[in-house]
Design a protein around this nucleic acid. Structure first.
Lengths: 90, 90
DNA sequence: CCCGACCAATACCGATTGGGTATGCCTGCG
DNA sequence: CGCAGGCATACCCAATCGGTATTGGTCGGG
């Protein structure tokens, strides 16, 4: 499990399509498709259902989604706290 | 920023030493040392102070630590929710 | 049914990253 | 100074990652 996988998963869900998400993340479609695939394999469950009009969230994906977002949000917050010099009294 | 970097950082802090943390993570010392280094470079701040008796947390490291733990805990929780089949009604 | 458009999956290749071993430098002790 | 402990660096090899080209499957039009 990597942050790239989680970021890709969230983007795919939000865009409803791997290709769309790929553009958003500035990568091409195949690598992103593989990222999702490897995430599913590692977790041992299918996260999204692929069909001709894009992808669709499966139950396991719905359960994972909030955690994935939480992780990304925490990462983002972490970047801020270390980059900022604020203290308790400042 | 990667989960490996965060995991390494937390382990190094908890063990107070890169070598110790390396054993705990089942990797050798040099790769783990580089992981920490690359994390610091990416964030643009020093997280730990190296000295002859091990390492010591710097202010930026102290700020990062809870976020790093939060991320790892969320990842762990995520693995459980997707691997488990529990629903709202039991 | 056949064709074209759209979308995800796979094959293949080159670049980057990551880990391991060997080694160097610094620090603390007697 | 000689010994011990610990992090950093150099170098090599394998694994991972990203990009291009291509395939397979589905939906809409004639």
């Amino acid at each position: 499990m990597s942050l790239s996988q989680l970021e890709g998963f969230v983007a795919i869900v939000e865009e409803g399509s791997v290709g769309r998400a790929a553009k958003r993340l500035h990568v091409s479609q195949p690598p992103l498709s593989r990222r999702l695939r490897s995430l599913e394999e590692e977790l041992g469950v299918l996260l999204l259902e692929r069909h001709a009009r894009g992808v669709r969230l499966l139950p396991a994906g719905e359960r994972l989604l909030p955690y994935a977002r939480q992780v990304l949000a925490t990462i983002d917050a972490a970047r801020h706290v270390v980059g900022d010099d604020v203290g308790d009294d400042g």
